[in-house]
Design a protein around this nucleic acid. Structure first.
Lengths: 108, 108
DNA sequence: CTGAATCCAATAGGATACTG
DNA sequence: CAGTATCCTATTGGATTCAG
């Protein structure tokens, strides 16, 4: 299997990453908005994930030169494509949860 | 975001999981075949992932009553749907790697 | 052949406090 | 507001050995 696919899976499989991408897709742009929109995420992880996604070229970090400066995030073209590419997976998990399967995936 | 989507992402984002699903989809069925097909995976992780995927209802573990018994794995209907749902993501990562983006996603 | 058991190193993640 | 820094624990993953 091509390694870039594994990389994509592992990036997107990191905790909170899906939630951040989804939130961004739904219009969330500010750090504090993510905090409010994503229940349970810590500042540290949010900051880390945003940076990872920016580094991966999936989010653009926009500095608005107001006073005080505002930081906004948005999906890059690649990021938008990714969110769209994840839709079938979202549908699948939704179908599955409706059918009753899901959960019990841990327990090593 | 619905928690089942996060669960799906985290399951599929675990190391080797994508490779195992792909290999299975391409006809791999035996433990030793996975070992041969997936470069670098250890017995421990292969065993663990197979069990996780079985527990999640994505793989079926078939015991063939020959002498000695043979163990075969195959995608369950859900697992097949999952593999199909992952195709857009695979396409996306392929497009991206062709375009030259990808990599540099780690470095916390 | 198909794993399970053990041991260890690395990484991820959570909580909290602090800063420009 | 938008993060950093620090600390600490839990989870992952790799290597190796053992077993039915």
């Amino acid at each position: 299997m091509c390694p870039t696919f594994e990389e994509a899976l592992e990036l997107v499989g990191r905790r909170w990453t899906g939630a951040i991408l989804t939130a961004t897709h739904q219009g969330v742009t500010r750090f504090s908005e993510y905090r409010a929109a994503i229940d349970g995420i810590s500042d540290r992880l949010l900051s880390q994930r945003l940076k990872e996604l920016e580094t991966a070229g999936l989010l653009d970090r926009i500095v608005v030169p107001s006073t005080p400066v505002q930081i906004r995030y948005r999906l890059s073209p690649d990021g938008l494509e990714l969110v769209e590419a994840l839709q079938p997976l979202a549908q699948w998990s939704l179908r599955r949860s409706v059918r009753g399967r899901a959960r019990q995936t841990s327990s090593a």
